[in-house]
Design a binder for these strands. Structure first.
Length: 266
DNA sequence: ATTGTGGCCTGCCCGC
DNA sequence: TGCGGGCAGGCCACAA
């Protein structure tokens, strides 16, 4: 499912293939998919005739800067991908395989699209409709991006919190970009129990977690996605820790199915 | 305020 | 063979 690495590849695709092209059409057939009070008419009025001028990402939120016709017409289109959303530009998807997404690319799963002058399009394809499109999303609700997070920012995200460490990592308001699979992977690599209270981490553990967070994100992006972690294939009943062979534990932590190794994650 | 829970939504997979 | 139920999880509304 799209976590930070996938959305980063969507951003890259949009940056290389969707910027500067005149928008001549907007297709928003699923009103449920439009968030923040937007509807198809508003999106058409704002987007048509303009162009995307920048592609940014904060956590799992893709932000497309847009310049409309005339002054004072700048806006930002926010795209969320939920767990099965994909970005397709001119028929080319940014990510080939996506865990849990339908194998077939059916047009009825196209939830939102813009058409460009001279042909071509940018499409949000999302079978399960857990993503959404929003105009001028409130970026300040998201914490610092996990990819550029500093150690002190990570410390601040955990400080004083009685919530489980994993719940802190998943809280997009504390830090943005970590989803369920990457949270398990990073905690496994860092040797930290997901059940520890966020505030219980010592400074040296925060530094260690930060190091593994950054390193893991880099590695997962190089490998091609959030599902390419070393723990991933062992997150199933009977799974053993690929580091020490101990049986993995499974529980709901932070509201999500969580797998970890009680032997080395403390 | 902080933390926890349930539900949204659809497709897949298991067991009957 | 078909069908029901459980499950997957990002995100949000709501409860405690």
């Amino acid at each position: 499912m799209p976590e930070l690495p996938e959305v980063e590849s969507y951003r890259s695709l949009a940056a290389s293939a969707a910027l500067g092209r005149e928008i001549t059409g907007v297709s928003a057939p699923d009103s449920w998919y439009l968030k923040g009070g937007a509807d198809a008419a508003i999106l058409r009025a704002r987007l048509i005739g303009g162009r995307f001028t920048g592609a940014r990402r904060r956590g799992k939120l893709l932000l497309l800067d847009h310049r409309g016709t005339g002054p004072g017409r700048d806006s930002v289109l926010g795209l969320r991908f939920g767990m099965t959303g994909r970005l397709v530009v001119d028929g080319v998807a940014a990510v080939d395989g996506l865990l849990y997404s339908a194998s077939t690319n059916q047009a009825r799963h196209d939830r939102f699209a813009v058409g460009f002058a001279g042909g071509g399009s940018m499409v949000v394809h999302d079978p399960r409709r857990l993503g959404g499109v929003e105009l001028d999303p409130d970026e300040s609700r998201l914490g610092p991006d996990a990819l550029t997070l500093t150690p002190s920012q990570l410390g601040a995200a955990l400080a004083g919190s009685a919530a489980p460490l994993k719940a802190c990592l998943l809280d997009q308001g504390r830090l943005a970009g970590v989803g369920n699979l990457i949270a398990d992977e990073v905690l496994w690599r860092a040797g930290l129990s997901p059940q520890r209270a966020g505030r219980s981490l010592e400074p040296f553990e925060i530094r260690r977690l930060h190091r593994h967070l950054r390193r893991s994100l880099d590695e997962l992006m190089r490998r091609g996605g959030s599902h390419t972690g070393d723990l991933q294939e062992h997150r199933l009943p009977g799974g053993l820790c690929p580091r020490d062979g101990s049986p993995l534990a499974r529980a709901t932590v932070g509201g999500r199915t969580t797998w970890w190794c009680p032997a080395h994650q403390r």
